[in-house]
Design a protein around this nucleic acid. Structure first.
Length: 214
DNA sequence: GTCCAGGGCCTAC
DNA sequence: GTAGGCCATGGA
C-alpha cells in the first residue's frame, strides 16, 4: 500500500467516517462550494441558512431573488459581489431549473468540469468539489487542507500546482468517488484539529505513519 | 488592531 | 508561467 492510501486508513481509524458533504441537495452542495471559497465554513453556513430561509437553495429560487437581495443574504460568506454573480451564473448554467441542474450533473465528467469552469468564479478546486460531491465523479479535491497535509508530510513539493497535486492523489488511490469524498472530509477534520493549531504537528495522529517535511 | 479562513481573477514581471 | 494584490466578512 502506498503512503497516501495508508494515510487514509490512519485518518479513518483516528477520526471515523465523516459522511460528507454537509448539504441536503446537490445544488446546495454546489452553492456551498462557491460560498466557502477563501472563507471559513462557519460563515458560508450562515449564508446558506439565509438562502434556505428565502427558498433560494434551488435554481428556480435563486434566479427569482434580486441581485441586491442575493448579495445581502450571502454577505456573511464574504466576497459577496463576486460570489453573488457566480451563483447567478451557476443557476443560469442549469437553465434556472432543477431538471436543468440534474441534466447538467448527468453530463460526462470531463465535459461537466469544463462547463463548470467556464463559469466566472468557479476554478479547478470548486469544480472538483461539485464534480465529486454533487456529481459523484472520481475527482480528488485539492484544497488548502489537502495541500498543507501533502506538503507537511513530504508527499508533494510545496511548489506543486493544482493539477500535479490532484494527479498525485488520484494515481495513488482507486478511482472511487466515495473514497475521495471521505478522504477529503478526513483531511479537513485533521486540518481543523491539528495542522492549524499545531504548526509543527507535535501531536499529529499521522506522525507514526508518515514522515514530516523538514 | 492584526491575521487568517475549505479560491479565483487579474496584472505585472 | 508565476508571484502578488485584490475581493469582504467574521472570529480568534
Amino acid at each position: 500500500m502506498n503512503r497516501i492510501a495508508s494515510a487514509y486508513e490512519s485518518l479513518l481509524e483516528c477520526f471515523g467516517p465523516q459522511g460528507w458533504w454537509p448539504a441536503e441537495t446537490t445544488f446546495e452542495m454546489a452553492v456551498g462550494a462557491v460560498l466557502t471559497q477563501g472563507t471559513a465554513w462557519r460563515n458560508a453556513e450562515r449564508a446558506i441558512d439565509n438562502l434556505r430561509r428565502e427558498g433560494a437553495l434551488c435554481p428556480e429560487g435563486l434566479s427569482r431573488i434580486s441581485p441586491s437581495a442575493l448579495r445581502k443574504h450571502i454577505a456573511a460568506a464574504g466576497f459577496q459581489r463576486r460570489k453573488a454573480a457566480t451563483l447567478g451564473l451557476l443557476s443560469e448554467l442549469a437553465g434556472n431549473t432543477e431538471t436543468g441542474w440534474r441534466a447538467l450533473l448527468a453530463t460526462p465528467a470531463t465535459e461537466l468540469r469544463g462547463r463548470l469552469q467556464s463559469v466566472r468564479g468557479i476554478g479547478p478546486e470548486t469544480a472538483d468539489a461539485i464534480l465529486l460531491y454533487a456529481g459523484r465523479c472520481p475527482a480528488f479535491v485539492i484544497d488548502a487542507y489537502t495541500r498543507r497535509f501533502a506538503v507537511r508530510h513530504a508527499l508533494a513539493d510545496r511548489k506543486a500546482g493544482y493539477a500535479a497535486m490532484k494527479e498525485l492523489f488520484e494515481s495513488s488511490l482507486p478511482a472511487d468517488p466515495d473514497l475521495y469524498a471521505e478522504y477529503h472530509a478526513l483531511l479537513v477534520a485533521l486540518g481543523k484539529e491539528f495542522c492549524r493549531t499545531q504548526p509543527r504537528c507535535a501531536d499529529c495522529p499521522l506522525r507514526r505513519d508518515l514522515p514530516e517535511a523538514r
